[in-house]
Write a protein that binds this DNA or RNA. Structure first.
Lengths: 244, 244
DNA sequence: ATCGCATCTTGGTTCTACCAAAATGTTCTC
DNA sequence: GAGAACATTTTGGTAGAACCAAGATGCGAT
């Protein structure tokens, strides 16, 4: 049973829940409807307190709730800024728990395995249904990747960008969000990997293999290329520092 | 009166964050370490306020934060109960935002498409690497599914259970959590579908097809069977009520 | 025009108080 | 003595005032 449903749009009298809930609901509505423009600053707590004719306690609680949902971005001493929700912010808001999960036994392995699973499916689909634009996007990303072999820092970025193109191919906004999430979650562990032009060369070659397989419309080859690519990269990460 | 006890330069904390953060951190630690037993009740706010020698405000704020992270389950007028985090609670805590996303144009389609994507990969892998136990689990789920054809309610459950077996095959704790999330998120929209023994019969036949393909170690057939299964079911849902 | 200081604003925190509902204890009844 | 009805205590939710410190602002001096 899921209890998180903001179930009722109660305009009627009965059993008031938390007072902050109605404030949350109102502000949420204002954000979604655009009354509160995206990237704009939320009114001061004292203003809101007057606007909703309630105490500051309630306002603060509501703001905290909305912030935890990702609809507001509240840095400690600053005015909260309005963030219209997207799939990325949704996944972002789980970040804190995910970080906990990752510290547990096998956490990183599980997450990485899920990523491999997803990308295997992505490259299969890409091999089947990538159109001209997708292909050229991959080609461009590949070119940038090649040019960055000497510079490990930008190579890392172009590496992610290349994989990011794959996430864009399904034309489903959820996938790019997942990609961003994977990158941000794995970065702390992945980023410690020793990088070198030699390693970059190897990874670039893997990308080429994936690209080629997609180009040749060979799902199995594409999947295979990606699987070996990621697993070897993962092995390299593992041996860089003992499994935590 | 200890006002500024740990206000600044306390320990390794670089910037003077919120006071509630240290409380959040402490309680979180206690939950993870088991000092606060799972399913037990959190001490009263006034106790905590004494324990951490701080005001009730920050305690409440900390509790709210932990609740939003899913480490506490806080019903309006009751004592919060401790919930040791799992992948399921992690996904659960995004539920509220996801519900918002789903109300936007194409939200449900996107989510459902992602589910199809995932399950296509699952059945492929199942066809390749399912072991005896997996097969027998599928067989059992299938049998229960068949027995429930007459009763649409339990058929729905056994239907989900069958798909759930697929999510268990990778032996990756993330996947069952994803399954639960999909079910709970899609339930409000999916549950409105008109169900009938005839429809159940069709769906059961699809399950058999998937099972058979897995049994025959035919990934392509399995994927195909699942894709058609879900897409026809989806079409049926769509025509039941116009796309929202 | 720019820098620097005084001031205002605003978020973070504490405190006190009150209310209502939950939890607990007590008594009364059968 | 068990269970129901009632009284009391706990406890979470809300209000409101006050204070502090850091950001934001404005103004005057250079």
């Amino acid at each position: 049973m899921i209890h998180l449903s903001h179930s009722n749009a109660d305009e009627s009298v009965p059993a008031e829940g938390r007072a902050s809930d109605v404030v949350v609901d109102q502000i949420q509505r204002q954000i979604l409807s655009g009354t509160l423009e995206n990237d704009s600053l939320l009114p001061s707590e004292r203003d809101l307190m007057e606007q909703f004719s309630t105490s500051r306690t309630v306002i603060r609680e509501a703001v905290a709730t909305l912030a935890s949902r990702g609809l507001l971005e509240a840095r400690p001493r600053f005015r909260p800024v309005v963030r219209k929700p997207g799939y990325d912010t949704a996944l972002n808001s789980v970040g804190s728990i995910v970080q906990l999960m990752l510290q547990q036994e096998g956490g990183i392995e599980s997450l990485f395995a899920s990523r491999v699973f997803v990308e295997r499916g992505l490259v299969r689909d890409a091999a089947v249904s990538a159109n001209r634009e997708d292909i050229s996007a991959l080609k461009e990303a590949l070119a940038r990747n090649k040019n960055a072999i000497a510079d490990s820092e930008t190579f890392y970025e172009t590496d992610m960008a290349f994989h990011g193109v794959l996430y864009g191919i399904p034309r489903n906004p959820i996938f790019p969000a997942i990609h961003i999430a994977y990158c941000s979650w794995l970065k702390p562990h992945w980023g410690q990997m020793l990088r070198s032009p030699e390693r970059n060369e190897v990874n670039y070659a893997s990308h080429v293999a994936i690209y080629t397989a997609i180009l040749e419309r060979d799902p199995d080859a594409a999947e295979e290329a990606l699987a070996t690519h990621l697993s070897t990269a993962w092995e390299y990460v593992r041996e860089t520092f003992g499994a935590s």
